[in-house]
């Protein structure tokens, strides 16, 4: 079973990766200037107050001792307490995770659909003006970063033609019956299409801003790969069987052309998740990224650590899924 072997191998390397991330994040944020205690106390606090609070959060101990305390907590599922909100980090972070996951996956779906259609259409009309127009559009989409696309979208669809919500995750006055934080998913399950439409309307622009550059990458790479595949002998043989262009592209070329694209999409998707930090801020979207920026501003060390570890888990998870997909799509790898 090739798939199982890939899975076990990746789980082992994932553990090592996460350990490395834990060490780096813990020490790096303690090198950066800024004192969480100073941020919490009002002006005029006495030295005794500062010392007391520092001791309360264990910040008076040597760094290596703090690390051991924190790591042993993490291994037992305790990520510590947020300094600003005084709530357990794990609960805070997991509460925000669904919002960011839904946003990222929505953006990924948009990027795959837009980029995929551009690649297929461009391949079918290769050598014509249509392909030229697609190349130009791809180039434009790639040369502008996601947060600028966010601003452009806010101007277009939030100000000039206000069709989408520009801020938040859901209209605050709505009564939410949800038991999980996967609003988009749960509203569908509960058949509450009114809520679903409201959530999509909030999510549409940030997701699109994240999706545009990734769609351009997918469109360019997949088209290139498809065009190369279209020259191969088995595609020519399929033509002699009486098949038309669309059929040949979809059944003969696409699956083989997707493989090189898939690896890159995996890597780019992790960049997209990184992009959520700024995009969520821009659209006041209540996700992990927005929380991360607040945590950094407040020097909330335990919260920063928790968020970074969670991001690392997501990244390695995405890479794992890509590897499994690759093995599933490529029969030569599956039996190897």
């Amino acid at each position: 079973m090739g798939l199982l072997r890939v899975l076990l191998l990746r789980l082992a390397t994932t553990a090592v990766t996460l350990a490395g991330v834990a060490v780096i994040v813990f020490f790096v944020i303690r090198v950066v200037p800024g004192n969480p205690i100073a941020m919490m106390l009002p002006p005029g606090a006495t030295d005794a107050d500062i010392a007391q609070l520092t001791a309360l959060y264990g910040l008076d101990k040597p760094i290596w001792q703090q690390f051991v305390i924190w790591l042993s907590g993490v291994l037992q599922g305790d990520f510590g307490t947020s300094i600003t909100t005084r709530q357990p980090v794990l609960g805070l972070v997991l509460g925000r995770l669904p919002a960011t996951l839904e946003l990222s996956i929505m953006a990924l779906v948009m990027a795959v659909v837009m980029g995929g259609l551009a690649a297929l259409w461009g391949t079918k009309r290769r050598g014509t003006r249509v392909e030229g127009a697609i190349d130009v559009a791809n180039g434009m989409a790639l040369s502008v970063p996601d947060f600028l696309w966010g601003l452009v979208l806010i101007l277009l669809f939030g100000v000039l033609v206000p069709v989408f919500h520009i801020s938040g995750r859901v209209t605050p006055s709505l009564d939410l019956p949800f038991t999980t934080n996967f609003y988009l998913f749960e509203s569908l399950l509960r058949l509450r299409f009114d809520l679903w439409a409201d959530i999509v309307s909030h999510m549409f622009m940030p997701a699109l801003a994240l999706a545009i550059p990734l769609a351009a990458i997918i469109g360019q790479l997949l088209k290139q790969s498809l065009k190369e595949t279209m020259h191969l002998d088995y595609v020519t043989l399929a033509r002699t069987k009486g098949y038309g262009e669309t059929h040949v592209i979809l059944r003969e070329a696409l699956r083989n052309a997707v493989l090189p694209t898939l690896t890159l999409v995996g890597v780019q998707f992790t960049f997209l998740i990184g992009g959520t930090v700024i995009i969520e801020r821009l659209f006041s979207y209540e996700g992990l990224g927005n929380m991360a920026i607040d945590a950094v501003i407040n020097r909330d060390l335990p919260l920063i650590q928790g968020i970074v570890i969670l991001f690392a888990v997501i990244f390695t998870g995405v890479n794992l899924v890509v590897d499994l997909l690759y093995a599933a799509l490529n029969p030569r790898l599956r039996h190897a």
Binding site: D233, L237, P331
Partner: peptide, 14 residues
């Protein structure tokens, strides 16, 4: 058609 190169004339993923 009977093609020239049997190694490239069959789709590897089908």
């Amino acid at each position: 058609l009977i093609p020239q190169d049997p190694l490239t004339a069959l789709n590897p993923s089908r």
